[in-house]
Simulated assay, not measured.
Amino acid sequence: MRPMNRLPRWLPRLVRELAKFGTVGGVAYVVQLAATNVLWLVLDAPPLVGQALGVLIATVVAFLGNRFWTFSHRARTGLAREYALFFVLNAVGLGIQLATLGTSVYILGLDGPLAQNIAGNVIGVGLGTLFRFWSYKRWVFPAPSEPAQDVEGGVAASARQPEPS
């Protein structure tokens, strides 16, 4: 038996989704940096306003990329529902990032620039990203529903092909 035949059938799809998810995240990050800096340097926006608007623009880009590319093969549950859940789960991911940074700074006392970057921008972003990927697949862009199973393990009667007469 060849080694590739031993891989679970779902693994190639997961790898593709992860690659697309990472690409969309990278594009959204570049958009966030560009938008924030344009707002700060060109439009003279206050620091927090520029940051917040840059993140908001990047979140819209990430939603569109994930909905129409990363998870395009998944069930559609309505644009408004998906968009609202996406923003809520993004906020949870941000909370994970902030909790990681807060733990490092305020509990462990690691408050230097290197420690803050490792805690917030490496560990926090990593954990938040894992949460986002899992939660988007689970709740925002769920897998298409499978036909119901009857008690004998077969396909439900309504999904069966009619028997020949």
Rank of each mutant, 00 (worst) to 15 (best):
F87W: 05
F63G: 00
V42E: 10
G65R: 06
A28K: 00
L33E: 12
G78I: 14
V105D: 11
G102E: 01
P47H: 06
V49W: 09
A45S: 08
V92E: 10
V42T: 09
V27M: 15
A75K: 04
S72P: 04
G54C: 08
T23Q: 12
R74N: 11
S104H: 00
Q51W: 05
G50K: 03
R81C: 07
A34L: 15
A99Y: 15
V30W: 05
N90S: 15
L101Q: 01
W40A: 13
T77L: 06
V42K: 04
Q51G: 03
V105T: 12
L33Q: 14
G26E: 11
L56F: 04
F71C: 02
A58G: 08
V88M: 06
V49A: 07
L101N: 12
E82T: 08
T103P: 00
L39R: 02
N37M: 12
L41Q: 10
P47Y: 10
F68W: 14
V15W: 07
L56N: 09
T23E: 04
T59R: 10
V49D: 01
S72G: 02
L41P: 03
A99W: 08
V60M: 10
F71P: 02
F63W: 10
L33S: 11
L64R: 11
A75F: 06
F21W: 03
A58D: 05
V24F: 06
L43Q: 12
A34R: 13
T77Y: 00
V92N: 06
V27W: 06
A52L: 12
V49Q: 03
A91I: 13
P47E: 09
Y29T: 15
V30I: 11
G26F: 09
K20T: 06
T36Q: 11
N90V: 07
G54Y: 04
V15C: 13
G50P: 02
V49I: 08
A35H: 09
D44E: 13
G50M: 11
A62T: 06
S104R: 00
L39S: 04
L41Y: 09
R74S: 02
E17W: 09
L41S: 14
N90K: 01
T103V: 14
